[in-house]
Each structure stands twice: as structure tokens, then as C-alpha cells.
Design a protein around this nucleic acid. Structure first.
Length: 829
DNA sequence: GAGTTTGAAACT
DNA sequence: CAGTTTCAAACTC
């Protein structure tokens, strides 16, 4: 796992986490699922959280604005003409700016399109003349048309705006260190906005054949202001044709030290989101934007029809963000080697996939530009996660074989998984010189996305992310689905079904590891590991991951993923620290075990013979299935593994209640929270923690079957208990605060510098006895002795006088120590 | 800390 | 569905 510097981390908008991608559960949905903010689309009782604002922290100085919307966009068949974007009712989801800059040295390499990603914008800068192989790309007239998933008629335009974006140019030129060539050559991606939330950020006009998309009546406020509302578009289907997927993968530079030259700064507002858009009949294409700033030199005009998925899924949890992507096959140009970096080492990469309609005409087509072409050839679906229904988890199949690297940002709540293209790891030299000063993100792309159809085994180095992972890209089935969910905790996504290739190494998986489905497994389930559990596994290791081309078992995967493996509602369970269990007989694989019941691995528990861990993943998965099953029909008993296999997920789908949180939302008019099943207490009066209602601090409801219930609103016993509990809580808080304060004070004293007794300097107010004070005290004592001698006092009387004087000296020292900070003389006699 | 009580989960 | 058993947490001493 690599660590991203705090500086880089600061660029990561935390709002992403608030994005709360809502996963639409629909097996029919292919490839990308864009969830709708509508409450009815949210499964389970869990309250639908309000639409989350995903505003980027982006400063207004960001250049062009790329607004990704779930709003359906119809891509015009004729691309030669001007491109128009329907923004009549824009739905703003994500603002992402990709601003590519060309490292000076990279131009020679050609086909390199720096991409800078900042809030609200996606800008693909290109030089005036970019040569890709034998092609010379002119910036003029290049357009990107993006269609969105779902509604039709609203085109999303990816245009190469001319130089009329002062703000954009400024940022661009600034990022490029004054390279004039780069100015004005930008690709803007404007994808509709959400009308009800916020209008789409207007995109400045395009010149020279490039037409601005946009955005009439788009409040400019949005540009400067961050669009925080996440569009949760209703899931839309294109029955006749598979959805086109535009993929955006933003990887951040992991170790800038290892890279020389251009430093890419990513402000991935879009990061953590999966934007999906469907364009019927259009093949998915992928653009890879790497921070190395290099674009695949050979951008093949041939479009790879194989849909590659890239899922950027934010975990809603404030804790971590996991970026998972299914990357297309990486370019293997030798130009991408990064100095000082082993070929396999993947520098921060960004993969941008923009959905695009039919091929554009030459000359104006975006595809001519390396980046544009990448967009053209790349997967064209952008999936934007919906508002966070926190109970969802993200399951993303790694179809193609990208290298997956974890990025752990110190101090960051998020976890990042960086995907590296295979080519980068192999022969290609990646010229990703990173200059911290630059604000550009190199675009790595994207040779023709050729997906290796054969199942490939992918070795993903996990912990020391610096090590290279060798990835063999695998094609993903167009029908495969990407499930995007938000989860407060980072989860390790693992195949729920036995995955022999990786199981031996499971115990070494680091946080955020994403495992691809095993080849040929078809419906492979995924298990999500609790972050804290995974966090324990910090050992670096390589995990061999087999990718699966098919990945057709979407429904089951979705269901399991949606259930947060175990249906945990983050707000209920993840936010509070779980007590360690003490199970002894249940193997921690029954609902007796709180950890298991909450879908978590045992971690720091006191349980014995625990199977709720990765070492017993098979048993655990079986137990999960069993728990999800309806009562086993007598005829099927005893259960056999075969029956479990047959039933397994289907039953779990049928009985999602198995791991459903017990505390859910009550009916309308009732309390907001209530026990889903109701308690069955008989002796406790529902006023002890035996009662699940009382334990959850909710009152019993009509569905409870309790006897002698005293846990109702008017219950005097309950009120008394509540008062007592409140008082106790207040006392505890006060005590805690007092202890904290005392500890702080003690710590402060202990950490203060020791007074310099020998030197006599550095006297501080808390210095009680310095050399001067000691000398003065001695003088006082001597003076007292002399006085006693003059007075003819006896020896005993003299000693008495001296001791009394010593006592006075001590008192002065003590009193003086607390007085003046700068007056050491106060302590003198 | 050991023993008891309690109620959910699991089983019949 | 009801009764019983098992289990682990809550509780008491």
C-alpha cells in the first residue's frame, strides 16, 4: 500500500464520501447502475438520507467545468457539426475537472495528453499539435459527445473549447509552467445537471467549430460554488442495447519521490463516484488518465467494443474511500517509463472513460486527439453513484486486469485503491515526472482498448503498494454489472465463493483490497471485509487474483453487496465501536455473535474457536448463507454443501432479513426508530439491556410481544430510569472531562522543558529552583546564621533560625514560581 | 470473577 | 407455529 502525502490528500474532497452512491438493485441493469435519489428506490428500511452534496472543495479557479450528470444525454449521430448539450433540466451530480498538461518532455513522446482533474471540470489539454504515431491531431473542432444513461435527448458534450476560457487557460497555463501551446486546447466534458438540485454549471462557449455545450440558465453560482448535490438518477435501462460506460478512474500519485518531473495534482471531485451513462448502441470506451501525464502513444482508432468497467465508488463512510476500477488494457508504450521507477511500478494514474456516441468524423472528432481519441475509443459510460444509502457496499468486479494498488492517505478518512494498467507495469516507460508545483494530471491512455478475452490471472501486490503488480487485463462481459454502494467503513471486497487462488493469501490482504471474481466462477459472490479487520492485516503481500471475463452473476452479487454483507446499516453499527464478543460455542458464525450478526469479522474479541475470520472464509460464507436461508425444509435436511450451493444466494436473496438491522425506521406516524421484529421480553420489563428495544434506546412498539412492558412513553419506571441514566451519563461525562483536563495538564507539565540549572539560563515561570534561587537561598541561610551568631544565639537557636529562614525561602520560591514569568529576582531574598 | 438471569437465536 | 434448547450478553453478588 502506498501512502499519499498529506498534500495530495488534501486535494481529495471528502465530500465524495458524502456522495453516498445509491445502488439501484436491479438485476436487469447492466454495466452501470445509476441509482435514483428517490426514497422508494432504496431498499430496506433504512432511512433514506437526504441528498448528499458532493460539492468539491474546488476553488473557483478551476478551469473548465465538467459536470457529470445522470441526466440522459442523446448523442448526436453526426459529430462533425457543432455539439450541443441539452441542459434544459440539468441534473448536477459530479463536477470533475480533468486538466491535462503536457510535461515538456512528454511532447516528444506524443500521444500524451495531460489531464487535470479538478472540481467541476474535466479538461483534457492537448498541445497544438499532438502526434500519435502517424497522426497529427489538431485541436480545432474536436468534440466529445457523451450520452448519459437513462433519459434520452439530453446530450452531453465533451468539447475541446478554444482559448476562450480565461479561467481555464489560466489554470492550464499555470499548470504547464507557461507552455503556450497548451493554452486553449482543452476538452470539456459537460454532462447535464440535475434540475431539481442544482443547475449544471455553465460551460463557456467553444470556438472554432467547437461548440459549447450548455447550460443555458445555468446559475454561475454553481461554478464557483461547489455542486454538492449528488444526483441519484433513476436507474435507466436500454433494453435493446447495453449501456455505454464511461469510466473515470482517477488515481493519485502515490509516491512523488519516486517520480521525477511532473506532479499531478488531482482534485477528484469526481473521485469516489461512479458515473454511469448509457448510450444505446455505443460501445464502451475508456480513457486512461494517468498522473504520469502520458497518454498512450498509439491510440488506435479502432474502438474496443468490449465494455470495461471502471467503478469509482466512494464509501460513504467518513472513514475511507475505495476506488475500484476495472481498467482497460493499459498502453504499453515505452515512453511511459518513469525515471527511477521500475517498469512495473505504477505511478498515480487516472483513467477517464467518457461515453461517446458513434465515431466522430476525422479532423473534428475528439478521437484524434490522444485524449480525445482515448475518449472515443474508451469505455463510454460514466456511472455516478447516487446518494448514500449507507447500507450499501461497493462491489466492483475487476474484469480487465488492472493493477490494483491501495493508497492510504495519512490522516485521510478515505481509502483509495489505485488501478494500474498492465502495460505500464511491463515494458512501457512512464514518464511521469511529477512536479509538485504543477497542478496537472497526466493522462495516460489508452491505446485502443483491447481487452484480453482470455481469463487472466492477475497478481496484485497489495501491501507495499510501491511494488509493481503485474496485471493481465481481462475483458469484462458487457452485461456485467457494477454495484456501487456507499459504506461508512472501508470494506474489503472478496469473493464470497471459494476462490482457491487467493484464499491462501487472504489473511494478508490489506485494507481496500479488491478481488476479482475467479475465472469461470460465474456468479461469484463477494464478501466485504470490515475495515478495522483488514487494517490489522498490514503485511505486504501479493495476492493472486484471477479475473473473470464473464462476471455474470450480478444479481447475487448485488444482493449480497447491498446487504452490506450482512445488512449492516452503517449509521447504526459502524459508527459505534463494537464490543468484543465472547463467543465460545457458536464459532462466531451464528447470530449469537454480535460481530457476525453485524457483518463484521471478529477483531480483538475474546471469542474462542472463532471462525469469523478470513482463515475460515469458507465456513463463514456458508454460515452467512445459512443465516440468510429460510428455515430449511425438512426434506432437505440435513443440509449438504450441494444444497447450500444450490440454495445459497438465492435463498439469501429471498431472505434478506437475515442480516437486516434490527433497528429500522418505523411506520409513518410512529417513532423514527423501532425494532424491526419487536422484543419478546417476559421478565425484564423491557427496562434492562436484555431487551433489544431498551438497549437500542427506543421504546417498545406494537409489534413487540413483551410481557409486563414498562418501556413505553408514559412509563414512570422508564422515566425514572432515563433520568437516572441521564444523570449517570452526565456524571460520567464530567468525570471524563475532568480526567482529560487533568491528564492534559499533567502531560503539559511533563512535556515542558527542564529548567537549565547549571547554565542559569532559560528560567521559566514554572522553574522553582534555579541556580540563582539556590544561591540566593544559601545566602539567606548564611545571613541568618551570621545574624544568629551576632545575636549570640545558642547553636540550637541558630539552627532554628536557619530552618525558619529556609522555610520562608521555600515559601517565596513557591509563591514566586507562580507569579512572574520574567522576574526571577522575585525569588531572591 | 463466578454464578445467575435473560431473551434472542437456533433447533425440534 | 409453538415449544424447547442453546447461546452469549447482561446482570448480581
Amino acid at each position: 500500500m502506498e501512502v499519499v502525502s498529506a498534500e495530495v490528500n488534501s486535494l481529495l474532497p471528502e465530500e465524495i464520501m458524502d456522495t453516498g452512491i445509491t445502488l439501484v438493485e436491479d438485476d436487469s441493469i447492466e454495466a452501470v447502475i445509476v441509482s435514483s435519489p428517490m426514497a422508494d428506490s432504496i431498499p430496506m428500511e433504512t432511512e433514506l438520507e437526504e441528498i448528499v452534496n458532493i460539492s468539491s472543495t474546488s476553488d473557483s479557479s478551476a478551469t473548465t467545468t465538467a459536470v457529470v450528470t445522470t441526466e440522459p444525454v442523446t448523442a448526436p449521430s453526426n459529430h462533425s457539426g457543432d455539439v450541443t448539450v441539452n441542459t434544459a433540466t440539468p441534473k448536477t451530480d459530479v463536477n470533475a475537472v480533468v486538466k491535462p498538461t503536457f510535461p515538456s518532455g512528454l511532447h516528444k513522446l506524443g500521444a500524451q495528453t495531460p489531464v487535470t482533474i479538478s472540481a467541476n471540470q474535466i479538461i483534457l489539454n492537448k498541445t497544438a499539435d499532438i502526434k500519435i504515431g502517424n497522426q497529427s491531431i489538431k485541436p480545432d473542432g474536436q468534440k466529445l459527445i457523451v450520452t448519459t444513461l437513462g433519459k434520452t435527448g439530453q446530450p452531453i458534450v465533451l468539447a475541446l473549447p478554444h482559448s476562450q476560457l480565461p479561467q481555464a487557460q489560466k489554470a492550464t497555463s499555470q499548470a504547464q509552467g507557461g507552455d503556450s501551446k497548451v493554452q486553449g486546447q482543452q476538452i470539456k466534458v459537460v454532462i447535464g445537471g440535475r434540475s431539481e438540485v442544482k443547475p449544471v454549471v455553465g460551460v463557456s462557449a467553444l470556438t472554432q467549430g467547437n461548440q459549447l455545450i450548455n447550460t443555458a440558465a445555468q446559475p454561475s453560482v454553481l461554478q464557483t460554488q461547489q455542486l454538492k448535490t449528488v444526483q441519484i438518477a433513476k436507474k435507466t435501462r436500454t433494453p435493446t442495447s447495453g449501456p455505454v460506460i464511461t469510466k473515470l478512474i482517477f488515481a493519485k500519485p502515490i509516491n512523488s519521490k519516486a517520480v521525477t518531473g511532473q506532479t499531478t495534482q488531482v482534485s477528484p471531485v469526481i473521485a469516489g463516484r461512479v458515473l454511469s451513462q448509457s448510450a444505446p448502441g455505443t460501445p464502451p470506451k475508456t480513457i486512461t488518465i494517468s498522473d504520469s501525464g502520458v497518454i498512450g502513444s498509439s491510440l488506435s482508432t479502432t474502438t474496443q467494443q468490449t465494455p470495461n468497467k471502471i467503478a469509482i465508488s466512494p464509501l460513504k463512510s467518513p472513514n475511507k474511500l475505495t476506488l475500484v476500477s476495472v481498467a482497460s488494457q493499459p498502453p504499453s508504450s515505452p515512453q511511459k517509463r518513469v525515471d527511477g521507477v521500475p517498469p512495473n511500478v505504477v505511478l498515480g494514474q487516472q483513467i477517464l472513460t467518457v461515453q461517446q456516441p458513434a465515431p466522430c468524423s476525422p479532423g473534428k472528432a475528439v478521437g484524434h486527439h490522444p485524449a480525445a481519441q482515448a475518449v472515443k475509443s474508451a469505455v463510454q459510460t460514466i456511472t455516478v453513484g447516487g446518494v448514500g444509502t449507507s447500507q450499501f457496499k461497493t462491489i466492483i468486479p475487476l474484469a480487465t486486469a488492472p493493477n490494483v494498488q491501495q493508497i492510504q492517505v495519512p490522516g485521510s478518512k478515505f481509502h483509495y485503491v489505485r488501478l494500474v494498467t498492465a502495460t505500464t507495469a511491463n515494458s512501457s516507460a512512464q514518464s511521469a515526472s511529477q512536479n509538485p508545483s504543477t497542478n496537472t494530471q497526466p493522462l495516460q491512455q489508452a491505446k485502443p482498448v483491447v481487452v484480453n478475452a482470455t481469463p487472466v490471472r492477475m497478481s496484485v501486490p497489495i501491501v507495499p503498494a510501491q511494488t509493481v503488480k503485474q496485471v493481465v487485463p481481462k475483458p469484462i462481459n458487457p452485461t456485467s454489472q457494477i454495484v456501487t454502494t456507499s459504506q461508512p467503513q472501508q470494506r474489503l471486497i472478496m469473493p464470497a465463493t471459494p476462490l482457491p487462488q487467493i484464499q491462501p493469501n487472504l489473511t494478508n490482504l490489506p485494507p481496500g483490497t479488491v478481488l476479482a471474481p475467479a475465472p469461470g466462477t460465474g456468479n461469484v459472490g463477494y464478501a466485504v471485509l470490515p475495515a478495522q479487520y483488514v487494517t490489522q492485516l498490514q503485511q505486504s503481500s501479493y495476492v493472486s487474483i484471477a479475473s473473470n471475463t464473464g462476471f455474470t452473476g450480478t444479481s447475487s452479487i448485488q444482493s449480497q453487496a447491498r446487504l452490506p454483507f450482512n445488512g449492516i446499516i452503517p449509521s447504526e453499527s459502524a459508527n459505534r465501536p463494537r464490543k468484543p464478543c465472547n463467543c465460545t460455542k457458536s464459532l462466531c458464525l451464528k447470530l449469537y455473535c454480535d460481530c457476525f450478526a453485524n457483518g463484521e469479522f471478529c477483531n480483538n474479541c475474546n471469542c474462542t474457536n472463532c471462525y469469523n475470520n478470513l482463515d475460515h472464509e469458507n465456513d463463514r460464507q456458508k454460515a452467512i448463507k445459512v443465516r440468510g436461508l429460510f428455515p430449511c425444509p425438512p426434506k432437505l435436511k440435513p443440509f449438504s454443501l450441494c444444497l447450500l450451493k444450490l440454495w445459497g444466494r438465492a435463498c439469501l436473496d429471498r431472505n434478506p432479513e437475515a442480516f437486516k438491522p434490527k433497528i429500522g425506521k418505523g411506520k409513518e406516524g410512529e417513532s423514527d426508530r423501532r425494532h424491526s421484529k419487536g422484543c419478546n421480553c417476559k421478565r425484564s420489563g423491557c427496562l434492562k439491556n436484555y431487551c433489544e428495544c431498551y438497549e437500542a434506546k427506543i421504546m417498545c412498539s406494537s409489534i413487540c410481544k413483551c410481557i409486563g412492558c414498562k418501556n413505553f412513553e408514559e412509563s414512570p419506571e422508564r422515566k425514572t430510569l432515563m433520568h437516572l441514566a441521564d444523570a449517570a451519563e452526565v456524571r460520567v461525562q464530567q468525570q471524563t472531562a475532568a480526567k482529560t483536563k487533568l491528564s492534559s495538564q499533567i502531560s503539559d507539565l511533563l512535556t515542558r522543558p527542564t529548567p537549565a540549572l547549571s547554565s542559569g539560563g532559560g528560567k521559566l515561570p514554572f522553574t522553582f529552583v534555579t541556580k540563582e534561587v539556590a544561591d540566593a537561598t544559601c545566602e539567606c541561610l548564611l545571613a541568618q546564621a551570621e545574624q544568629a551568631e551576632k545575636m549570640g544565639k545558642s547553636k540550637a537557636a541558630a539552627e532554628r533560625m536557619i530552618l525558619e529562614e529556609f522555610g520562608r525561602c521555600l515559601m517565596r520560591v513557591i509563591s514566586s514560581a507562580g507569579k512572574s514569568k520574567s522576574d526571577p529576582c522575585a525569588m531572591n531574598c
